[in-house]
Write a protein that binds this DNA or RNA. Sequence first.
DNA 1: CTGATTTTTTGATTTTTATCAATAGTTCTC
DNA 2: GAGAACTATTGATAAAAATCAAAAAATCAG
Lengths: 187, 187
Amino acid sequence: METILNILQKFSNIPQESLERFVRKLQETNIPKGGFLIREGEICDRLSFIQKGFVRSYYFKDNKDITISFSMQGEFIASMASFISQKPSYETIEALEHCHLYQISYQDLMDLFEKDSHLEHLYRLILEQYYVALEEHLIFSKFKTAKERYLELMENQPHIIQKAAVGQIASYLDMSLETLSRIRASI
Amino acid sequence: METILNILQKFSNIPQESLERFVRKLQETNIPKGGFLIREGEICDRLSFIQKGFVRSYYFKDNKDITISFSMQGEFIASMASFISQKPSYETIEALEHCHLYQISYQDLMDLFEKDSHLEHLYRLILEQYYVALEEHLIFSKFKTAKERYLELMENQPHIIQKAAVGQIASYLDMSLETLSRIRASI
DNA sequence: CTGATTTTTTGATTTTTATCAATAGTTCTC
DNA sequence: GAGAACTATTGATAAAAATCAAAAAATCAG
């Protein structure tokens, strides 16, 4: 299994000392299946690295929920808009399976950035990757039909299909759960 | 009219010296209406600040084009995926009206970040704002009906409706131009 | 293990939106 | 300023997907 150190080292050849400074601020947390990393209305004051597990981030609309993203081990997750602005989150993030996380608080991270510009550099690189991924997701949903979107998800992120419920995947792919169920039957 | 200095100063209280270092690397460029900031297939090696003007960024699909975003004066624009990775762009960015730009090359920007961490800090803050805006756009398109999407655009970014063609706005809002035309007739 | 609850599938129908096609309006060029 | 080229509107129809409803399957709790 990849450690957080392995993953961070891939982003840039940042001094070992800086990485250690970062790792010292991490807190280990476990969230059981069905538990929450952040709930709508709370301020997201922690950035989490998923060491092991699988999470879903979603919004409420009327009394339904709409999936915004899925994240798995090796990825960072936070309600980004809330974390960045330190204002209440519109997003809820739940553990779809037991999660083993390493978390850093907003304040600790900002303090580290002031003390050590290598860490802000690293964060910048990670943020850029996440920006590009988000842009790709936006474009992907504009360009494809319902069936193509499902097939591409199967191709690129089969673990989502294994682990998430049909209704959760359907709203992620912008279709009703009945439509997704029919697409599944047709292939 | 707001200068680039005014806008940057809003993001953080970065030393004047750093700002001046950045501004010295900017190159002034004018792009006529209908001209291009970047074309599909080229590597986007410049980040542009729009001092005056209005641009549209789009992808080609089959022989049609699909609008990804509009940007106006006071905003930064680049084909971000290409700029970040320094690989060819899938995106084309055209000037919908005469544009007065300040541009910095990728290499100059990276060099500045190495020399002056205040500038990387500033860039990080700007990137965060753009990340949040992108996320909002993604969520917005998931939550609303065709008519709601148009009404919200009218409310929040009426300049787009003034300046862009119906077909360009329609693909931005994820609908056919006929549907948008009918929505316009109905309100 | 078994009944209860939740999730998924399937069917019938309606709604929404896309597509195709023709006309009207605008703007560009010479 | 007249004709050409492009853009927008309107109409008719088709296709895609949503909604409503019920049955089947899977999962959970005791």
